[in-house]
Design a protein around this nucleic acid. Structure first.
Length: 830
RNA sequence: GGGCCUCUGGCGAAAUUGGUAGACGCACUAGACUUAGGAUCUAGCGCAGCGAUGUGUGAGAGUUCGAGUCUCUCGGGGCCCACCA
């Protein structure tokens, strides 16, 4: 336990008082302009970690600053409380996940209060509570009605360890995002949200998001993965059944269509059986079985040699009249494009490798302008731009132009079309787990899929479940949940047993804060339009794709449904860096975690808040060091000592005299410079690290000034009071308890957190003199302190009169002089 | 392979946006006070040099009176995506 210089217990005292007086409550009806500051809400995993501390401190300082600046600030918090860890904990202890979750929420709430965050707790939302998930279900039904939620049989990502399917976004390098086990493909009937309907809008509107970093925007753009190309349909000339068949392909290189020498379909291609001859059937089926067994990781590995088998059938190229064979190979992906690719080995790396291996023919159709390609000499595909050859009427055309011309020909002749393709897939939201919002749908023997009527919401999670089951969702053990009545015919129906992906819960929580206690609807439209979009969203970069893309989709969909009037939820996004210790990410396995509770206890929350903001800008990683905490703690004690030992000389109702001595005037100017700099650093870029260095500079200046004086005169007391009062107000968004305590001790009225932000006097926000830098040919040769008001001409004369300048210019001619006002004089000599 | 970000003392980092490079802090060194110092205060601290001075922002070139900042070429590190046709 550290000895505290400032009184122990002040943090708790103020936290209780603020809660009692509801200092941070937000009211909807206010004349002031609104400001919505939001941290990404936490998963109640048990305890806060330092990443949370950083996140919430950053947002808290922003919220408090904006409040002092005269905004009506909304700064809420809640819990993203559905999800697997709670269920796993429940399985271990045989208890209901709700209990584990509630306990964690209680503990973490206590910690958030200990950190002194200015939340309006009256707007707290908890996604696992029926009063919240009722509306998650209701929103699902609105999406369903709009045709944006549908069920289909599909190859899905299956994590065996979690016993559930995963969205594409939740598969990282072929592994489960949560437990890191290898993901398999399974065929299941699952619910999807049609996020692909919004692919173009999600991509285009990224341009509107000026307050987002380019890194996040590019990640999203890459994920959406737009590409432009063509679809060509090739007639099959020898289908075993004799029927007329076509194989459509998607390509971004229509310019190479005359160079096709074979065609590849994915092993899972839907018509593959009908395209396989009897004599090839055995080999093809073996190949497909093999492909099915392979994990995603093996299959997608780019350095694996290409494999494939011929189907025995052929297509005709309508551009050339040539026929070419069909193959199946696992480098074609069934989910992308049409599941089939036209192969032009000379101009595509993958096709080249494949053709080399299986000795398939090659034909050059794009020629570089500076040399001639020869098939026999090629060691790589030629994928750069060039001029078309061997391409009939398109010969001589630039390939960039040929793309359009060739596609146009296919359109005119009815065997092709222009096509824009996205990599984004629909969002798979079914989870075979208990701890989530039940999908509000029933299956009637007669009427099929039926949504649960809105007046029957919420579909409550059953409590009579056995959490000790393995290999299936605990929800299936309930005796009361499954059987129900069809809302249409009144006959027997069974409930959907899957729950929703928790990312659905977190895709709309920021809307609920605008109207958190509404029991008639998810939120009032006027209120949500008033508060949203979020003015400043703060959270980790790990959500760059998942949560942020889903939330954008939800906002756009809900706008189209008519529930709100804006189409982007988060105006400005700050992605904070990680908190490191000894250069690597804090983790339990590395044993380099720092427990916030210990820091609160040993140093207090103000020290923790100050330190976590101090060393790095918010977007960069932050290296936690014990020495750094110590340093911040000492700094706070310096302030406490400075003020408490001079308390009788400080009066918050100070009156700055007109005429000041040189030193007193200098201090007043330094204070004004600090106000200007700190305000600017917070407003422009949330550069809290420089804000804190400016606190330190200011304290250093005040201390030095005080040390240079004996007993203070009346005038000096006014100057000192001005400096101290300004200091604690400037620091109040960061060191929230210490500032409040000092404020009270100095006789301040009310809470310092209800004070307006300090303003500065522009005329005083600069020093009375400056250092005139004298350069010769751009090198600094002299520095002269001169009066702030010195004109350009005087600067030049002063510089030329300098002894140093004379030394350097002797025997040389002055070509010209450049004078930068209030800064420097550069003398160019020869 | 594609994209984005990044590179400044022993360390975290500043730099009014083209104008004194290294503010502020950590660590370190010396001194003061002290029974003690892991408290506090004072001074020093990019590198080379006793010094004048030279040199210095990943490397190299360019533009400019002047470049950490702008342009080009190259390299290191990080993140995201990736057999996406």
């Amino acid at each position: 336990m550290k000895e505290l210089y400032y009184p122990q217990g002040i943090e708790k005292k103020w936290q209780e008082k603020w809660a009692e007086e509801k200092v941070f409550k937000t009211y909807d009806n206010s004349e002031k302009p609104k400001y919505y500051a939001l941290s990404m809400f936490p998963y109640p995993s048990g305890k806060l970690h330092m990443g949370h501390v950083r996140n919430y401190t950053i947002t808290d300082v922003i919220a408090r600053f904006k409040k002092m600046k005269g905004y009506n600030v909304l700064h809420p918090i809640g819990w993203d409380s559905f999800g697997l860890p709670a269920e796993n904990a429940a399985m271990q202890h045989g208890a209901n996940p709700a209990k584990w979750t509630d306990e964690n929420i209680a503990y973490m709430t206590k910690q958030l209060n200990m950190l002194g965050i200015s939340y309006d707790w009256d707007r707290e939302v908890t996604t696992c509570k029926p009063d919240y998930y009722k509306w998650t279900q209701w929103l699902f039904l609105q999406l369903y009605k709009k045709g944006l939620a549908y069920k289909k049989e599909a190859a899905v990502n299956w994590c065996d360890k979690c016993g559930t399917v995963l969205a594409n976004e939740q598969v990282i390098d072929g592994k489960c995002w949560r437990c890191d086990s290898v993901v398999e493909k399974k065929y299941l009937s699952q619910w999807f949200l049609k996020i692909t309907d919004y692919a173009e809008q999600l991509l285009q509107d990224l341009d509107k998001l000026e307050g987002w970093g380019d890194n996040v925007k590019t990640m999203q753009a890459n994920w959406i993965g737009k590409s432009s190309g063509a679809i060509f349909r090739f007639k099959v000339v020898d289908a075993p059944s004799g029927e007329e068949m076509e194989v459509p392909v998607y390509t971004t290189r229509p310019d190479t269509v005359h160079g096709i020498t074979y065609l590849v379909v994915a092993p899972e291609y839907k018509d593959i059986d009908k395209l396989t001859t009897a004599e090839n059937k055995k080999a093809v089926e073996e190949y497909r079985a093999n492909a099915r067994k392979m994990s995603e990781i093996e299959r997608l590995s780019t350095d694996r040699p290409k494999t494939g088998v011929p189907l025995g059938t052929h297509c005709i190229n309508p551009f050339t009249g040539e026929t070419f064979p069909l193959w199946t190979a696992d480098y074609a992906l069934v989910e992308y494009g049409t599941g089939a690719v036209m192969a032009v080995p000379t101009h595509d790396e993958r096709d080249f490798a494949f053709a080399k291996k299986y000795n398939l023919p090659m034909k050059i159709v794009i020629s570089p302008t500076d040399r001639e390609l020869k098939v026999e000499e090629m060691e790589n595909a030629y994928t750069d731009e060039g001029i078309l050859v061997n391409s009939n009427e398109f010969n001589g055309m630039k390939n960039t132009e040929a793309k359009k011309a060739i596609t146009q020909k296919s359109v005119d002749n009815g065997f092709g079309e222009f096509k824009t393709q996205y990599r984004l897939r629909d969002w798979l939201i079914s989870r075979q787990r208990y701890w989530g919002a039940p999908i509000p749908v029933v299956y009637c023997d007669k009427c099929g899929i039926q949504p649960v009527p809105e007046d029957q919401l919420p579909v409550m999670l059953p409590e009579d479940v056995d959490f000790s089951v393995v290999g299936k969702s605990p929800i299936t053990t309930s005796k009361t949940f499954k059987d129900t009545v069809c809302p249409v015919c009144g006959g027997h129906a069974v409930r959907e047993m899957d729950t929703m992906d928790t990312f659905i819960c977190s895709s709309w929580y920021y809307l609920r804060y605008a109207d958190a206690k509404n029991s008639d609807k998810p939120f009032d439209k006027a209120l949500v339009n008033k508060w949203l979009p979020v003015d400043q969203y703060v959270g980790g970069i790990e959500h760059a794709i998942l949560h942020l893309l889903y939330s954008r989709f939800f906002t756009k969909a809900l706008k189209d449904i008519g529930l709100l009037d804006f189409d982007e939820p988060f105006k400005n996004l700050l992605t904070q860096g990680m908190v490191l210790k000894d250069g690597s990410k804090m983790s339990k396995s590395k044993g380099n975690t720092v427990d916030p509770d210990e820091i609160f206890q040993n140093y207090g929350a103000d020290t923790a808040r100050l330190f976590i903001l101090s060393d790095s800008p918010p977007a960069r990683d932050f290296d936690w060091s014990d020495a750094g905490v110590e340093g911040c703690y000492k700094f706070l004690n310096r302030i406490w000592t400075l003020i408490s030992s001079n308390q009788n000389d400080i009066n918050l109702k100070y009156n700055l005299p007109e005429n000041l001595s040189k030193e007193d005037d200098k201090l007043v100017r330094i204070v004004n410079i600090a106000i200007k700099g700190i305000t600017n650093d917070i407003e422009t870029d949330f550069q809290f690290n420089t804000v804190i260095s400016k606190y330190r500079e200011l304290v250093n200046s005040i201390s030095d000034w005080r040390k240079s004086k004996g007993d203070l005169t009346e005038e000096e007391k006014q100057v000192f009071s001005f400096a101290i009062a300004t200091l604690i107000k400037l620091m109040s968004p960061v060191t929230v308890h210490l500032s409040e305590e000092i404020w009270e001790n100095l006789g301040g009225e009310g809470s310092i957190h209800n004070q307006p932000w300090v303003e500065y006097d522009e005329n005083k926000a600069k020093l009375a003199d400056f250092t005139l830098v004298v350069q010769i040919n751009g090198k600094v040769r002299d520095k002269i302190t001169v009066d702030e008001s010195m004109s350009k001409e005087e600067m030049e004369q002063t510089a030329l009169a300098s002894e140093k300048v004379k030394e350097y210019t002797v025997g040389k001619t002055i070509v010209k002089t450049i004078v930068v006002p209030k800064k420097l004089v550069n003398i160019v000599v020869k």
